[in-house]
């Protein structure tokens, strides 16, 4: 394990339509091979934090560095090359309804990497096996799968090209505790198996403790605490304490 930052946010600022800043000078980094989990309340900027890192949103100021390279400065071709090094599991899995399960998993292989459909299908079925889904689901359509199975297909799609960085957007949201635990185990297996760097956002503390080896707490567009999962229960940081204890009173006011 090394301490060189694989992914780094440097003084990142982002606001929408002249409103209050969503990210207000965000500084954060994750070393290669580590798994960072960003926790925080709803509307605190977690999704924006990973979207600027995935290149889906442009930061207004600051830098997002992947292997020391500022992704905001990348042109079209370089940006596509960056995308080829990342895998993403979206909150709702974001599977393409009109494509079968294996076509979803093999989407990048067929449409971006030029792999033949026959070879792509073989690799997709192999990736489905890695997330404990049998070849029997390969020809099904996403609408016929349960939420947990859709998440597994999304995970298979994220890992099929052996990416260097994996992003997980609320991986257990909407799932029952047993399915959530299964998804968390799969995430840990895949991240360790690939030896890749992982960044997750969640407000599910059980998930954060299972999949993360570094946790950062985001509030008002800034990181207010970082530590290990074990330190989460020991810290007296008022933000973390309020979040972990689930109290409505504290430094964070509820948006409800």
């Amino acid at each position: 394990m090394t301490d060189i930052a694989k992914l780094e946010w440097r003084s990142v600022r982002k606001r929408f339509d002249g409103g209050a800043p969503v990210l207000d000078g965000l500084d954060l980094s994750v070393a290669a091979g580590r798994s960072l989990v960003i926790i925080g309340g709803s509307g605190q900027g977690k999704s924006v934090t990973i979207k600027v890192a995935m290149g889906l949103m442009q930061a207004d100021a600051g830098q997002v560095l992947v292997d020391g390279q500022n992704i905001n400065a990348l042109g079209g071709k370089a940006r596509r090359e960056l995308f080829s090094r990342i895998g993403v599991l979206f909150q709702g899995a974001a599977l393409f309804d009109s494509l079968s399960v294996w076509e979803n998993v093999a989407f990048r292989l067929i449409n971006a990497d030029g792999v033949s459909r026959k070879d792509a299908k073989e690799r997709a079925i192999e990736a489905l096996g890695r997330v404990r889904l049998g070849a029997g689901v390969a020809d099904s359509y996403p609408s016929s799968l349960s939420g947990g199975m859709q998440k597994r297909v999304g995970l298979a799609r994220a890992v099929v090209t052996n990416p260097e960085i994996l992003f997980f957007d609320e991986p257990t949201t909407g799932l029952d505790p047993i399915t959530s635990a299964a998804i968390n185990e799969l995430i840990v297996d895949q991240v360790r198996g690939l030896g890749c760097t992982a960044v997750s956002i969640t407000h599910d503390l059980a998930s954060a403790r299972t999949i993360g080896d570094q946790i950062a707490m985001l509030h008002d567009g800034k990181i207010v605490w970082t530590g290990s999962p074990a330190e989460l229960d020991l810290t007296d940081n008022p933000y973390v304490r309020q979040f972990v204890d689930g109290r409505s009173l504290g430094p964070m006011t509820s948006a409800v």
Binding site: G92, A94, F96, F107, R108, N111, A112, R157
Partner: peptide
Amino acid sequence: MRATEQIDAMRTLST
């Protein structure tokens, strides 16, 4: 597709 992040997913899949 936009509402369910499929378009974002497509971009992250280099397409």
